[in-house]
Each structure stands twice: as C-alpha cells, then as structure tokens.
Amino acid sequence: MCIIRASVTAVPQLLVSTVLLGGIYALIAVGLTLIFGIMRVVNFAHGEFLMLGMYLAFWAFTLLALDPYVLLFVSIPLFFGAGLLTYTLVMKGVIHASHNVQIFTTVGLSIALQNVALVLWTGDFRFVRPWYYSVVVRLGGTAFNLSQIAAFVVSVGFTVALFAFMKWSYTGRVMRATAQDRDAASLMGIDTDRVYGLTWAIGIVCVGVAGVLLAPLYPVYPTAGLQFVLLAYVVVVLGGLGDMVGALLGSLIVAAVEVVGSYVFGTAWKEVLYFLLFIAILLIRPAGLFGQRGTETLGV
C-alpha cells in the first residue's frame, strides 16, 4: 500500500513542475510527431539525437566553456546539417520502402549512434554544471531550478515557432500537402523527397535542441536519450500520431502523471504509471486522446 501524502500546499509546486517538465517533453515529442506525420516514419533513433545534443552541450561547455544556452544558436544549424546528412545517407534510400524496412533502418541508426558515442566518449556519466545550475528560484510557495525555466522557455518558444511555421508559412503548407497526398503534391511540382529531407532535418533540430537544453539538468551518457524518447512515444500516441497540438497536450499529461505520481507514490512508480495510462489509452482510444480515427493517415 502506498501512503498518500498529498497536501494542499504542494499543489502549486506540482503544477509548476508539471508545466516546466511538459514544455521540454513537448519539444522532443513534436519532432517525433512531425517526422511521423509527414514522412510516415517512426524514428527509433530520435533519442540518439537527443543524446548527441547533450554531448554537444557537454563538450562545448567542457572544452570551450560555452554555455548551453549560447550553444543553442550554433546547435540549430549543426543539427539541421546532421539531419540532412543522415537523411541523405540513411533515410533517403528507404523512404519508399515498407514500414518494416524503415523500422529496422531507424533502429539500426539508433544502435549505431549509441555505439559511436560509447566508443568515442565511453559510458561514463558526465555532467554539465554551469553557474546557474544550483540557482533556485522561489516564487509564491514554489521552488524551481533556473535551468528548468530556461529550458522551458526556449522549448515552448521553439514549439510555438514550429506550429506557426507549419500553419502559416508557404513551406509549411508544402509539407502538409505532401503529408496529405504525396502523388498529388508531386504533380504540383513539389519535390517530395526534398520535403522529406527538410522534415527529417527539422525534426532532428527539435530533438537536438532539446538535448542541449536538458544537458544541465540530467547526466549525459550514450543511452541517455532512451528514457526521454520512450516518454516521447507515449506522448505522441497519447496526442495522436502526427498531431502536433496533441503532442503538446500529451506532453503536459505525461508530465503531470510523472510529477504527481512521483509525489504521491514515489519516483520509482512514475514509469509504471504513465505506461499504465498509455495502455489504457491504446485500449480505449487507439487514435489518441485528441486524434480523430483515421486522421493520422492525413498528417498535420
């Protein structure tokens, strides 16, 4: 039996923690759902790009004394390039192949990247500890880490910018059109392979930036991406595959389950809880909480 220790005074803290955590999960999940929504590919290597983001932050901080938040601006073009490179070398060849082939390919990419990291940087846990690491902000009975807020703000800003880009920019429309009907899109003169490359690269930028943001908060090691990306899969299925608004709401729900669950039952239970939630959703609403049945085949 677990003892319920919840008290009213804890509510504001739980709320703030949920929102802060949810914001960061959103950025990881949005990249995953974007790639799925447009390319119909589940990227099993998503967590490894998160890990690469964390290592990038670690090495930039250790070798160049570069603050992770300064590094953000450099990391965007860097991950965009890494995305285009992996698309050209790995994904382009399987983009028209069956889902099985695509799954094996991204799983293979994931294992390859993990092991490259292991060989290059060993399996040691590494830590990024900038000056603000231990700065705690207290506000109206709640306390939170400064890096958490910074990560949250950047993450939400990034997610909102991506929404706006997809909804209102011409390129965003081209991407959505490609998701909704690839043949029709190519008959408009749209080079759909290039759209897929762009989509992949943007998804990788999202998760890479999330990695940079998470580096001051979590230990860095070759399989560091795994725990987060498992979460991201739960988030994405919760929100409906390919649904970006759903991914945002799903992130908040998963964060709430994690924060409240850890508080009430203890940290060890958090994964049990959100996977129970996950299974329940799959049984009751397989299209996701906010998804309309079948819309996942039409993209965002």
Partner: peptide
C-alpha cells in the same frame, strides 16, 4: 482520379 485535393488545406 477522385480529385485528390489536399483535404485539410
């Protein structure tokens, strides 16, 4: 065939 508009645009 069957129009094939982008349904959600």
């Amino acid at each position: 065939e069957r129009r094939r508009l982008f349904p959600y645009l």
